[in-house]
């Protein structure tokens, strides 16, 4: 048994959100630099250049990369040997969100009663929390300040299993085509395949945490990722939709077994500003 105090969790969550909103992860930055080199369109290269300039200003002056500092998505891997002390885990996380969004001058974007009054909760809570219980005595906290524009382009479908691989490719490529410039390309595509509908959405979200461009360890899945990536980049949408060769920086697919009647597929689209940060307690 290992004790982890709620105060430490709150402080960690607060810091993670503040940092994630001003520092772009190294792997994402490298992917954007690479895109700028391989992009054929001069207009698109100019856009990527200004994006890199933005990243620089943001990190130096601590101005959020994007004004949409997102819904506070928190993914936990909680070791089963861990004992949380000094309060309850989810309250501690929400307190971390409250403090981080205040101290970091981050925008509070959550509204109550989303179908009617839409009154701002004023502290960006509640966080969206997903918890996996894992072996061991550590707590891994991953945060994704998830922008609304790209999130709105995400989709779920229940394909007839007969549609198979090609059905998945068509669904993703059509979705990206339809989304066009809306999700702020070049995008990262989180793809969930299998499970039940709720499971596959969660897989798609978690896929966004993978290092950009790192293929799935299963060669068949990696090949599917490559094919989707190529077809998406053939669409010509390009950075910010102004036309170009690079519409996606990466496709990350995660697969789970499914029911004999089902082939659920979920896409969670992430903007170029692919913000996330992790910490292990």
């Amino acid at each position: 048994m290992r004790d982890i105090d709620c105060k430490q969790i709150t402080e960690t969550v607060s810091n993670l959100f503040q940092e994630a909103c001003v520092y772009l992860p190294e792997d994402v930055l490298a992917a954007i630099k690479q895109a700028r080199q391989s992009e054929e369109s001069p207009v698109a290269r100019d856009v990527l250049g200004r994006i890199l300039e933005n990243v620089d200003i943001s990190s130096k002056e601590k101005i959020p990369l994007c004004q949409d500092t997102g819904s506070a998505v928190v993914l936990l891997e909680l070791g089963q040997e861990v004992h949380i002390t000094g309060g309850d885990l989810y309250t501690a996380i929400n307190e971390g969100v409250r403090q981080g969004y205040d101290k970091g001058y981050l925008r509070k974007s959550m509204v109550h009663q989303p179908f009617s009054a839409r009154v701002n909760t004023k502290d960006n809570t509640p966080a969206i929390i997903h918890t996996d219980i894992v072996p061991g005595g550590k707590l891994k906290i991953s945060v994704i300040p998830k922008g609304g524009g790209s999130e709105n382009c995400s989709r779920l479908t229940a394909l007839p299993p007969a549609k198979g691989r090609q059905g998945i490719i068509d669904f993703v490529v059509n979705l990206v085509d339809e989304s066009g410039s809306n999700p702020c390309p070049p995008i990262v595509i989180g793809l969930g395949i299998g499970g039940t509908t709720d499971k596959t959405m969660a897989l798609a979200k978690r896929a966004l945490l993978r290092k950009v461009g790192e293929p799935n360890p299963d060669p068949e899945v990696a090949e599917l990722e490559r094919e989707i990536m190529q077809q998406v980049n053939n669409l010509g949408i390009g950075p910010m939709g102004y036309g170009g060769k690079i519409t996606a920086l990466a496709v990350h697919a995660e697969v789970f077994p499914a029911h004999i009647a089902s082939l659920p597929v979920a896409v969670n689209i992430q903007c170029w500003c692919d913000r996330h940060k992790e910490s292990i307690l």
Binding site: I51, E53, N54, S58, P64, G149, S181, C184, M240
Partner: peptide, 29 residues
């Protein structure tokens, strides 16, 4: 930033207006 509907595009032409995009995610710049 992002796509406009046909109705908006028609109105832009009709009323001689304009739609600009700024770079999404480049809020610091």
């Amino acid at each position: 930033k992002g796509n406009r509907s046909q109705a908006v595009k028609d109105a832009i032409k009709k009323y001689k207006a304009i739609y600009f995009a700024a770079i999404g995610g480049a809020g610091a710049l």
